[in-house]
Design a protein around this nucleic acid. Structure first.
Lengths: 244, 244
DNA sequence: GAGTGGTCTAGACCACTGG
DNA sequence: CAGTGGTCTAGACCACTCC
């Protein structure tokens, strides 16, 4: 009946509640509307109300307690920096990110990268090397490897003007649904030290990042080397208490 | 009707499927039974079948594709080391973990720890300092802070014999539902270097770990200092693609 | 006792995938 | 086309929390 919006009802309701949380109508620890209240307020069945609240829980915006209700999650839980792009992450930290393209070519990664990220050795990769800056100061050195077969014509993109995530999503229609990271501390190599303007041997934080599509096929491999004295990263998880 | 097992049906079915995955009956990428098949096989309604498969997806054991089916997740996705205990993590790496109690007292954490983990400064904490070893070699130095109010009598536990997680779960009935970590790289301090048997200034991986109960109240604050040349950590996540 | 979420039934229509 | 998961309705009984 005149429904011109094809977003599922439960998503619409989750969006509505999310907006109320974000503009402060509901604060950390506040009780959200119960399933029953959502049913009468929006004229939906209980399963739809449950699904809406579940979305908020999945997104770590809320948590549920049996017999008590659904509550807005603590602010801290909602700010986990690991899995956003460099640009988004730095903006969230109140810094002004920028990027300098160092090279874009068709090359094999070195042996260590190949093994660490479990990359097929027989594939061809575009290698995108960028120096990432915050407030015009060097912050990180990023080596991104993109399977050449998936990205025909990638070498014609101007990465001084556009973001990598934007390009792979919009130009190549990639849908990413999972991402993984491996974290290490290491002494800076001479090359890293030169670009980051620190002394060789100073600790750096190395993050190996893998982005996967909905079949868990890797669509992007990235090694990032961060100045350790300026950056730390956070991540959170429900401990997997599966069944024994 | 003669149901003497009060585990929900959908959990029972998820457990059953989990067992089949773990004993190799279903392998990475294999299609699991469809919702319809589960309905007829177990005599359940569709919503129950959906819930069972959802459990596997939540536990990162499976993923779903519309119109195709539910599939066993890739093995890599299932091995994320960040949020298991030191003991479990090291065993999963094929190492033999052990522990040496350095001290257990009632002290305030230093200022940096206090701020980093957002600990209330007016509370009293038990501080448990342990050297963690793998194959009898120093691996990490761990400072655990436990709010004294939550753990009366903790100082009487023999932590050379028992695991911290076991004690807080079994003796104090803590239910943890969420955990967070902040990762940093830093040069080893003199104290850290001495215990870890490395040179001062060598890079170490510092992990600040927070364990929360079902109201997101912190029940444990831990700072771990790992030898960087021997350990890295992995974590994974569905990128939160919430609604804009 | 009233309200909450947890679990479950028996249906339905749809969009998407694959042959 | 048949099969899959995605969404949804209109109910139901239960366990738990709070008063």
């Amino acid at each position: 009946m005149g429904n011109i919006d094809f977003t599922p009802r439960y998503i619409q309701i989750a969006q509505h509640l999310q907006a109320l949380i974000e503009n402060g109508a509901y604060k950390s620890g506040d009780r959200l509307p119960s399933e029953k209240e959502l049913m009468t307020q929006f004229g939906i069945s209980r399963i739809t109300a449950t699904a809406a609240l579940d979305e908020l829980v999945k997104a770590h915006l809320a948590y549920q307690q049996r017999g008590r209700g659904t509550f807005v999650a603590k602010a801290m839980i909602r700010n986990l920096s690991f899995f956003s792009s460099f640009t988004e992450d730095m903006r969230a930290r109140g810094l002004s990110p920028s990027s300098k393209l160092l090279s874009l070519d068709l090359t094999q990664p070195d042996q260590v990268t190949l093994e660490k990220l479990q990359m097929p050795a027989d594939a061809a990769y575009y290698r995108l090397v960028r120096l990432r800056l915050t407030n015009q100061e060097p912050a990180a050195l990023q080596y991104a490897y993109l399977p050449a077969l998936l990205y025909p014509g990638l070498d014609k993109v101007d990465f001084n003007q556009r973001y990598l995530y934007e390009v792979i999503r919009e130009d190549y229609g990639m849908k990413t649904t999972w991402s993984e990271a491996i974290v290490e501390a290491a002494p800076a190599t001479d090359e890293e030290a030169a670009h980051l303007e620190i002394s060789a041997g100073t600790p750096v934080l190395v993050i190996w990042h893998l982005t996967l599509d909905d079949e868990y096929t890797p669509v992007e491999y990235v090694r990032s080397v961060y100045q350790a004295d300026r950056f730390s990263f956070s991540t959170g998880r429900n401990p997997i208490q599966f069944y024994s």
